[in-house]
Design a binder for these strands. Structure first.
Lengths: 112, 112
DNA sequence: TGTATATTCAACCATTTGGTTGAATGATAG
DNA sequence: CTATCATTCAACCAAATGGTTGAATATACA
């Protein structure tokens, strides 16, 4: 674990919003312009542009200019980092997930 | 994908803070009282208590009373849910991670 | 060159967040 | 009961977030 602190703050912070997660979902399927993205939300263009800046800061997406428009796509390198953080969290949860299994087995009945 | 929206907001929101991630790390190893936790940070007791409420709202920890103190531990069921979200995110990233491999192979040299 | 299109920037506003302090509540020990 | 320890609640504050509108910038097109 290096100095992931700020990056993790940005990464998780960026993921803590449904619009941004939806943007990620969309651009994970295809590279889209800002206006193409903006069409999907009941938000102003500027608001979507701001969301994109949050995602850019978190290095979850990159933009490249194509004529008048700006094309958004997932940022492959940061994506790998994100997956790594997530993997780390999964690891650190793992021991507890073992405990969970035991817990669930011991508790087949009395779940509220 | 059910209605994870609010939960994911809370989950990722809760994870977007180093103090809270550190609390999670600590309580993943052992059940700790609020004051035992608070000792580790240069924060008031109340501030730590607030962080714990955020983690509770995200169902990442649970508290149980033990005499005067309140013992904090990872919330096993929510932990499983969190792992599931994370797994989902990994899945949806997977296609792009394949693309990443290709990208990395094609780009052995020119990384800035 | 001027105009339209795509996007960002700046200023502003309301709400949320992360922190503080001090009072209130809960539980145990005398 | 009352004092004490552990924790929360309430009120407050500054900074960050998520949104708006309107002006500014960049590119293409005629």
């Amino acid at each position: 674990m290096v100095e992931y602190t700020f990056t993790l703050d940005n990464t998780f912070g960026a993921l803590a919003d449904n619009t941004r997660r939806d943007i990620l979902r969309r651009v994970s399927e295809a590279e889209l312009s800002v206006s193409q993205l903006a069409k999907n939300y009941d938000l102003t263009f500027a608001a979507v542009s701001k969301h994109l800046k949050v995602l850019e800061r978190a290095k979850l997406v990159i933009k490249r200019r194509n004529g008048k428009e700006q094309l958004v796509s997932l940022a492959p390198q940061a994506m790998a980092d994100a997956a790594q953080y997530i993997e780390w969290y999964k690891q650190f949860m793992e021991s507890r997930l073992d405990a969970l299994e035991i817990y669930l087995k011991e508790d087949q009945n009395g779940r509220q």
